[in-house]
C-alpha cells in the first residue's frame, strides 16, 4: 500500500521518464531479448520454428566465421595498443607546449575524427590505389616497390590496419591531455628535488597517474575495433577471398544478403560474448589497485 502511495505521489516523475523509456524499451530492451530468441529459431518470412542449437552449430562449423574472428582479433590486437600508444606519445609531446600550443594541436588531431568513417574509407581506397595512389608514391621515396595493397590477400588486412593506425587518435589525445593537466605540479616539484630527469618524471609520475584514462581508452577502443565494418564494406567487401572478413561484416552479410536471420543472431551473440570477455579481462588487468 505504502509503495502504491509512493508511486502515486511521484507520478510526475514517471511521466518525465515515459518518452525515453518508450523508445528505450522498443528499440533496445525488446530487441536485445528478442535476439536471443531468434538465435534459436529458423526465422523465415512465413513463420519461424525452433531449431535448438542448430544456428550456433552452423556458425561454429563455418570456416568463414573463424577467418572473420581471426581477422578481427588480429586487427584489434594490433590497432588498440597501437592507437593508445600513439595517443599517449602525442599527448606527452603536446603537453609541454602550453595552453595555446595544446589547443592548436589538439584540434588538428581531432579534426579528422569528426568526419565520417565513410569519407575516410573512400579517400584511403584512393590513397591505396595501385598505380596512382599516394601511398605507393610515398613509399617509392624509400625505394619500396608498389604494392597492390587492397587487391591481394597477403596485404589487404595490413592495409586496413595501417590506415587505422594513421587515423589520429583524437579522442585519446584529448583525454590524455585533460588527465595530464590534472596531475598536481607539486608531484613533479618533489621529484625534481629528488633529482629525477624529465623522462624519469614522465615514467614514474605521469604514466601511473594516467592509468585510469588508459583503461578507459583501451576498453572503449576494443569495443569499437571489434565492430569494425565501414572500412571493410567500402574498401574490400571482406575480400580478396576472406582476407579482410570481419565479424560485423559477416553478420551483415548473413542477415541482409543471405537473409539467414537466425544464424546472424547467433553470430552476433558470439560477438557480444567475445567483447564481454575482453572487457572483463582488460578491467581485471588494468584497473588501478586501490
Amino acid at each position: 500500500m505504502k509503495l502504491l502511495e509512493d508511486i502515486w505521489k511521484n507520478r510526475v516523475s514517471y511521466l518525465f521518464l515515459v518518452p525515453k523509456l518508450t523508445f528505450f524499451t522498443l528499440f533496445v530492451v525488446i530487441p536485445v531479448v528478442w535476439a536471443f530468441f531468434i538465435a534459436f529459431q529458423k526465422y523465415g518470412i512465413f513463420g519461424s520454428e525452433w531449431v535448438g542449437l542448430e544456428n550456433f552449430e552452423k556458425v561454429l562449423k563455418s570456416e568463414a566465421f573463424y577467418i572473420a574472428m581471426g581477422n578481427t582479433f588480429k586487427y584489434t590486437i594490433i590497432t588498440v595498443p597501437g592507437s593508445v600508444i600513439i595517443a599517449l606519445v602525442l599527448a606527452s609531446l603536446i603537453h609541454p607546449l602550453g595552453k595555446l600550443g595544446q589547443s592548436f594541436y589538439r584540434s588538428a588531431f581531432y579534426l579528422p575524427t569528426v568526419t565520417s568513417m565513410v569519407i575516410i574509407a573512400m579517400v584511403w581506397r584512393w590513397i591505396y590505389n595501385y598505380r596512382y595512389g599516394l601511398f605507393n608514391y610515398i613509399l617509392s621515396w624509400f625505394g619500396i616497390a608498389p604494392i597492390d595493397w587492397l587487391g591481394q590477400s597477403s596485404s589487404a588486412l595490413w592495409a586496413i590496419i595501417i590506415m587505422t593506425l594513421l587515423i589520429p587518435p583524437g579522442v585519446g589525445i584529448i583525454l590524455y591531455l585533460a588527465a595530464m593537466n590534472n596531475i598536481s605540479e607539486s608531484l613533479y616539484e618533489a621529484a625534481k628535488i629528488d633529482g629525477a630527469g624529465p623522462f624519469q618524471r614522465w615514467l614514474f609520475i605521469t604514466l601511473p597517474m594516467l592509468k585510469p584514462t588508459t583503461l578507459y581508452l583501451v576498453m572503449l577502443s576494443t569495443i569499437g575495433s571489434f565492430q569494425v565494418f565501414t572500412q571493410i564494406i567500402l574498401m574490400t567487401k571482406g575480400g580478396p577471398g576472406h582476407a579482410t572478413e570481419t565479424l560485423v561484416h559477416i553478420i551483415y552479410k548473413t542477415a541482409f544478403r543471405d537473409f539467414e536471420f537466425g544464424v546472424a543472431a547467433a553470430q552476433s551473440i558470439f560477438l557480444f560474448i567475445i567483447i564481454l570477455i575482453f572487457s572483463i579481462i582488460q578491467y581485471r588487468v588494468l584497473k588501478t589497485d586501490d
Partner: peptide, 17 residues
C-alpha cells in the same frame, strides 16, 4: 548496463521490428 551491449546484437531484431 545496455551501454555495454554492441549495437550489432540488435541488428536483426530491430530490422524485423
Amino acid at each position: 548496463s545496455t551501454m555495454m551491449i554492441p549495437g550489432q546484437v540488435t541488428l536483426v531484431p530491430m530490422f524485423i521490428m
